[in-house]
């Protein structure tokens, strides 16, 4: 399992260090009346886990997380999460580039997509209400409220959401759409009031 490169060849100076650029140039106006903020979460490592004939997602979840995982559910705590929001696929989020040893038997299921997705944090007291207004789903619905993760449309953007608290919602979006999404967020804030 190749880790994202953190060692360099032929480093001669600090200037040679490879800099991982953020996906967006967005900064939320902190003076917004709504108190809502949107920030890009710093370096994240993400893997797409595809089910296969040899291994299924439940086996992966049991082995690596020690728990069963049903469709629509989320496992994990802190900065490590496993989101099962596709029938045959799950998304693994980590704060470190290396995966635990227990995942080695499942290496054929994993593909690094760390740079393909951008994670944003939507914060503020009205974050959940804001989300409910602009997404096609009904996040206050009991089941979604319990599972705390969701894949839906936010405006015209396809997003994957997960949260522990209603005032801190994490949004995963394709990197190429991230800047446009952030601009759209600011555009909506002007209407939110």
């Amino acid at each position: 399992m190749p880790a994202v490169s953190s060692t360099l060849m032929g480093v001669e100076s600090v200037a040679d260090l490879v800099y991982r650029q953020a996906a967006t140039s967005h900064t939320t106006s902190r003076t917004s009346k709504s108190g809502l903020t949107l920030d890009e979460i710093e370096t994240r490592y993400l893997w797409s886990i595809q089910a296969s004939r040899k291994h299924d997602l439940r086996a992966f979840a049991r082995t690596v997380f020690g728990e069963a995982l049903e469709f629509g559910e989320m496992l994990g705590a802190d900065s490590t999460r496993l989101l099962h929001l596709w029938p045959h696929k799950a998304l693994l989020l980590c704060a470190q580039p290396e995966l635990p040893d227990s995942s080695r038997p499942f290496s054929s299921m994993l593909t690094d997509v760390s740079h393909g997705l951008c994670e944003l944090g939507l914060g503020g007291e009205q974050a959940f209400e804001f989300l409910a207004c602009y997404s096609s789903a009904n996040p206050v619905q009991t089941r979604i409220h319990e599972t705390r993760n969701l894949r839906c449309l936010f405006g015209q953007y396809q997003v994957t959401l997960w949260w522990d608290q209603r005032d801190d919602i994490r949004i995963l979006i394709d990197r190429s759409y991230a800047q446009s999404f952030c601009d759209y967020f600011e555009h909506l804030l002007q209407r939110w009031g």
């Binding site: 296969s52 593909t111 690094d112 997509v113 760390s114 740079h115 393909g116």
Partner: peptide, 8 residues
């Protein structure tokens, strides 16, 4: 197994 890595 198929994974889209277009944006990655």
């Amino acid at each position: 197994q198929l994974t889209s890595v277009s944006d990655h």
